Amino acid sequence: MLALFQHRCLPLPMPRVLRFALLSLSVLAVGLVALIYALTWHPAAREPAVLACQAEAPQLQPGQALKVMTWNLQYLAGKRYVFYYDLPDGEGPDERPTAEDLAYSLDEVVRVIREEQPDIVNLQELHEGARATDYQDQLALLQERLADVYPCASQAFYWKAAFVPDPHILGSVGLKLATLSRFHIESAERLQLPLEANDPVSRQFDKKRALLVSYLPIRGGGRLAAVNTHLDALDDDPETLKRQVAMTRGLLDQLQSEGLPWILAGDFNQLPPGQYERLSAPQRSRYTRDSELKALWSRYPMIPSVEEASGAQQAQWFTHYPNDPRVKGPDRTLDYVFHSPSLTRIEARVRQDDTLRISDHLPLTARFFLPSGH
């Protein structure tokens, strides 16, 4: 009787249909993971950046004047749109620019760069292979038009995927940093910044912000490091932004300890002191009152300086003109140039008068004297 009872209590064999269903689900899960991995991009923490430089490009000279420009080009979209991500509620009506507007912006960017004649140009938000801009290689389009001025260029993606399942995108993305130079670039590297905190799946499709570091030899010995970046705007994840700024400062501290002159220029997505309070509640929602950039400006010279960006003339340093119908002109500073103390600032300005239709950011330029080498 006991044996019969024990026999009846043994677990029943799993039905074949259930085993097949579980196996199928496992295969689908593995296949989904493999598909997501194949569709997305997985850069190393540190890797060589793509670099093209003509052999005859001149070298920097000790003590020479050097003009630098930084400009977020908003992928040549222009200012006739309110994109879905432009409004605080994410409800902007537009998803992509027209081919005509892309062509107009390209012409205008070339015009401004040729008129300004900067020696080094740090550009952000250039598209390559993105469905939203007809799969253009926007850096290549610029290089074709500026080949006689800039023999050298480095580049690094910070968003890349064959397909993003966001309803506003539903296709490929490709977003990059680029540095154009009149002078020889001997090497360049991409340094991965800390990633936004997100779930494991979403994180694969997120932007992967970076530092693009280009090294320009100086005749007689030494190098200049030109650093390009576009930091996150993470009001809901301040720790990631803090870590990105900390890593950036770590790089600058390292360059400084090695005795290398350096310039860091880009879109930092942070306000200087005093500008948070002047924005309306909807406009300030993406920023923190206390900028994380204090970790940089408290140690190294910044353009515009805190006094310039916070004083009575702060409007002349505004670099951002949001694509928001409630905003009627440039109203905040998000783009900066930091530099090593060994560089002497000559002059700087934001070109506002004839650039308002080109991008939601305005070009910031600065001129320096390089160290003389003595």
Score class of each variant (00 low, 15 high):
residue 5 F to Y: 10
residue 5 F to M: 08
residue 7 H to S: 15
residue 10 L to W: 13
residue 12 L to S: 12
residue 17 V to H: 14
residue 17 V to E: 15
residue 26 S to H: 10
residue 31 G to A: 15
residue 34 A to N: 00
residue 37 Y to K: 11
residue 39 L to C: 02
residue 41 W to M: 06
residue 41 W to V: 04
residue 44 A to S: 14
residue 45 A to N: 12
residue 47 E to F: 08
residue 49 A to H: 04
residue 50 V to A: 13
residue 51 L to K: 10
residue 52 A to L: 08
residue 53 C to M: 06
residue 55 A to P: 04
residue 56 E to I: 00
residue 69 M to I: 06
residue 70 T to F: 11
residue 72 N to V: 05
residue 73 L to V: 15
residue 74 Q to N: 01
residue 74 Q to R: 02
residue 87 L to S: 00
residue 90 G to W: 05
residue 96 R to V: 00
residue 98 T to W: 00
residue 100 E to D: 11
residue 101 D to P: 00
residue 104 Y to N: 01
residue 109 V to I: 15
residue 110 V to N: 09
residue 111 R to T: 00
residue 114 R to F: 09
residue 117 Q to M: 13
residue 122 N to Y: 03
residue 126 L to E: 04
residue 139 L to W: 01
residue 144 E to G: 15
residue 148 D to S: 15
residue 151 P to V: 11
residue 158 Y to G: 11
residue 160 K to F: 09
residue 166 D to K: 13
residue 167 P to R: 08
residue 169 I to D: 06
residue 173 V to Q: 10
residue 177 L to E: 10
residue 183 F to N: 05
residue 185 I to H: 06
residue 186 E to G: 13
residue 192 Q to G: 07
residue 195 L to T: 14
residue 196 E to Q: 14
residue 197 A to V: 14
residue 198 N to H: 14
residue 200 P to I: 15
residue 200 P to T: 12
residue 208 K to D: 03
residue 216 L to F: 05
residue 216 L to Q: 06
residue 222 G to C: 08
residue 226 A to I: 05
residue 227 V to K: 13
residue 237 D to K: 11
residue 239 E to H: 08
residue 242 K to L: 15
residue 244 Q to G: 12
residue 245 V to F: 11
residue 246 A to T: 03
residue 253 D to G: 09
residue 256 Q to V: 02
residue 260 L to W: 07
residue 263 I to G: 03
residue 266 G to T: 13
residue 267 D to S: 05
residue 267 D to Y: 02
residue 268 F to H: 08
residue 268 F to P: 01
residue 270 Q to A: 10
residue 271 L to T: 03
residue 271 L to N: 03
residue 272 P to Q: 12
residue 274 G to T: 06
residue 274 G to Q: 12
residue 290 D to S: 10
residue 290 D to L: 10
residue 297 W to E: 02
residue 303 I to K: 06
residue 314 Q to T: 07
residue 315 A to Y: 04
residue 316 Q to T: 08
residue 316 Q to C: 01
residue 322 P to K: 03
residue 325 P to M: 13
residue 329 G to W: 01
residue 332 R to P: 03
residue 336 Y to F: 11
residue 336 Y to N: 01
residue 337 V to F: 10
residue 346 I to C: 05
residue 349 R to K: 11
residue 354 D to I: 11
residue 356 L to R: 15
residue 363 P to D: 05
residue 365 T to E: 02
residue 367 R to E: 13
residue 370 L to K: 10
residue 372 S to D: 11
residue 373 G to N: 08
